[in-house]
């Protein structure tokens, strides 16, 4: 083999080996993948889970409401309303990114809340928690800021002074009833 082919074999072999090692205990918080990911800026080390170990069956709904200057509060509005599945989405599904992003952000935020409260061990034990109960550092966390940014930049007809976001979760296979997951404080616009 030529030198370039040996180099290629080395690169691809190492890539495959690191990819395989990265799959070990991938669902654990301190998995090898979590350590690799810190250095994998370009996301070239895959995490192959295909909805394992536990698929995301919980739906998250991001809502917001505004407090107007006269003190009245607007009704809740959902940011990315769910749509039904259509056959076309097997070929063309531009809405999936935004919905997946909301899931990713909410999961990051719930993890950050969990990290800030060591006594919480269940997956989503924060249901019903309001801003007053959230650890203070959550207000500057990436997940919280991301959700606040999304609801703050939505174009409004009026001139509200403050906004508040709410994350609700539903599990259709269970009761299907929406449950409060995270309620933010009111923030100035």
């Amino acid at each position: 083999m030529a030198a370039s082919e040996w180099i290629l074999a080395g690169i691809l072999g190492a890539w495959l080996l690191i990819s395989a090692i990265g799959q070990i205990n991938v669902s654990e918080p301190r998995s090898v993948y979590q350590r690799i990911r810190q250095w994998d800026l370009f996301g070239l080390i895959p995490i192959w889970t295909f909805f394992a170990p536990r698929p995301a069956w919980t739906d998250y709904h991001l809502l917001y409401r505004d407090r107007l200057e006269d003190g009245t509060v607007s009704p809740w509005t959902e940011v990315v309303p769910a749509t039904g599945r259509t056959p076309v989405q097997a070929l063309w599904n531009p809405a999936k990114r935004e919905r997946k992003a909301i899931i990713d952000i909410v999961r990051t935020l719930t993890r950050e809340i969990q990290d800030g409260r060591g006594d919480l061990s269940e997956e989503f034990p924060f249901a019903g928690r309001t801003a007053q109960h959230l650890p203070a550092k959550i207000f500057t966390s990436l997940g919280y800021l991301a959700l606040l940014h999304v609801v703050s930049r939505i174009p409004r007809l009026g001139t509200p002074s403050e906004t508040q976001f709410l994350v609700m979760q539903t599990d259709v296979a269970e009761s299907g009833e929406p449950e409060v997951l995270i309620l933010s404080a009111f923030h100035s616009l």
């Binding site: 739906d59 769910a82 899931i103």
Partner: peptide, 13 residues
């Protein structure tokens, strides 16, 4: 798990 994920709005039918 399969029934539950396929019942979800995000990844279901």
């Amino acid at each position: 798990y399969l029934a539950r994920v396929l019942s979800s709005g995000a990844y279901g039918h």
